[in-house]
Structures are given as C-alpha cells and as structure tokens.
Design a protein around this nucleic acid. Sequence first.
DNA 1: TAAGATTGAATACTCAATCTTA
DNA 2: TAAGATTGAGTATTCAATCTTA
Lengths: 163, 163
Amino acid sequence: MGDRTNIANTEISNTNLGDSCNTVWKKFLTANALLFELSERDLAAAKLPPLAWYDVLWALEQAPEQRMRLHELADAMIIQRSNLTRLIDRLEAQGLVCRRNCPSDRRGSYAALTDTGKAKRQEMWQVYSQSIAKYFAQHISDQELEVFDRVLSQVISHAKAEY
Amino acid sequence: MGDRTNIANTEISNTNLGDSCNTVWKKFLTANALLFELSERDLAAAKLPPLAWYDVLWALEQAPEQRMRLHELADAMIIQRSNLTRLIDRLEAQGLVCRRNCPSDRRGSYAALTDTGKAKRQEMWQVYSQSIAKYFAQHISDQELEVFDRVLSQVISHAKAEY
DNA sequence: TAAGATTGAATACTCAATCTTA
DNA sequence: TAAGATTGAGTATTCAATCTTA
C-alpha cells in the first residue's frame, strides 16, 4: 500500500509511520474478508443461511420486545434501506421474522422476531461461534483484546458520526 | 452477540472471556463496514472508481513486471474467479489494465497494468489515503498499531491456510 | 483427470424514483 | 417539505456448467 513518493523527506526516515499504518489497514481489510468467507463457508456447510441473516436475527433478539423499526435495523446493519427491505422479504418468506405495523407512525413498520427465527439464530450460533473461536479468538490474548476493543470503539464512534 | 446459556458455569463468572471476544469480533465487522462505506463515499464524491478497482491496480503495481496471473489476483483479492473475470473486463474497458497471453501456460492469462491504470491509481490514492488517515490512522497509536499488526498477521496466516 | 478462465442463469445490491403519512 | 418504506432498472456477485489446455 501507500506511495513512497516523498522520499525527499528522509528526516522521518526508517520507520515511516504513515506506511506502517497503511499496511495495518490493508491487513485489517484482508483479515475481515478472509474470516467472513470462512464463516460463511462453515454456515453453508451446515446448510444454514448467510451471516447477513444472522445479523438481522441477532439485532432483533437484542432489541426491546424483539422488534425494530426497519430504518433502525438498516442503520444498525450498515446497509441501505432498499437492501434491507428485500433482506426482510427473504427472512419473512422463511418465517424467521414478520412485519408489524407501527401504531405511532403509520408510515413505518417493525420487523419482529418469530419463534422460528429465534430457534434458527441459536442453530446458527452453534456454528458461527465455533468459527469465531477458530479464526479469531484463538489468535488474540486478553490484553490484545482490550487494545482492539479500545481502538475499534473509538473508530466506530467517530465513523458513525460521519456516516 | 453470544449466548449466555452456560450460566451454570459461574466459576468463570465476572469477566466472561468468550463474550468479550464476541463483542470485539462484532466491533471488528462493524468498523470494517463503516470505514469501507466512508472510503467508498469519499472516492465517489471525487468521481473516482470503487475500492475494488483500487485493489486490482495496487496489486498489479506491486507485482513483478506489474502483471499477475488472473487466478493469483483472485486469490490475493479474496474474490471468486468469475467475479474477477468481470472485474477485469470493466477495468480493461476503461483502459486501466490489459489482458496478455501467458506463454508458459496457454490456458492462462495475465492482467497487466497500463500507464493509464498507474495514473488512475495515484489519483485514487490521493483520496483514499486521506480516508484511511481520517477514519483509521487518527484513532490508533503506534503501540496499538503494533498490536494490530501482530494479531492480524497471525489471523491472516492461519486463515489463508484454511482458505 | 484436473487447472485456468470464461459464460449463463439466478440472486443480491445500488441508485433514483415513487407512494404514503408526518 | 420531508421521512419511512418500497419498487424498477441497472449493475455486480454467485454457483454451476463449459471450453481449452496441462
């Protein structure tokens, strides 16, 4: 990654911080892509739905009354609303969630978790948690975990403000 | 994230390591999605192509003779071959890369960087490097960067072996 | 028989436009 | 006028099948 066009700047010299940061950024993207693929593969091998479905089911299970407004869910998942509309269509077709009218704002809808959806999430978690353990948890110590948590929390909070 | 079904296991109690790991894993995914979106948005605002194009151009510029076999490029980018075929089609249509026959294996092809492609990568880097600085570099110290580098390298090397 | 690359068909995603209600 | 949600059209991605050469 990174240009080395500023070689004139020999004062910064041996440890070019900008470059090491770009290297780490690239590794961040690579690790994400690899682990996502491997996790998806593990789910598919167990004949289970993709991670995007898990994210919906998990978000709903966390939410009060196990339901969320569609635009909130889209924001939480960092996907576009039109994308979420169709994602919910698919989950609803499988009976994992259902749409409910919003009484206080008749423009809006809720996506609500069904019992089937709850069961499916648990089934997926049996597999997904193993993937996280294998591909991620196994390679990071408690102290390193703290560093990741601190940095990522900071990055996310700034990014959400920009988003 | 994470089930809390093993509450019987009160000995591990207060700091449940498994759970904190799942939380960090989720933050990892969230940060990646947010920063990817923000970077894409910055590029689009400058009327520049998406990150996937940058990745192709960058990989080729690093490679010996600024060219790579298509299957190597697909592996490096962690995308499927059919996906890469069409990605290269688009870049080729814009004159940023060109396909070259492989003399030693007549089944195969190279993707080679053109001068236009090289220039475009530099133009993209002007914008992309700013995004990395704003959204990532600014929030991580040198020491934290070292931790990220160590952990991610480990994760990637294990994941590639599984992939 | 298998590997490198491409293709077709089906699915998923994005962007802009639309419809309804605030 | 704007927000919540959906739709249509275009683009991108996936999966399986195909073609060529090793």
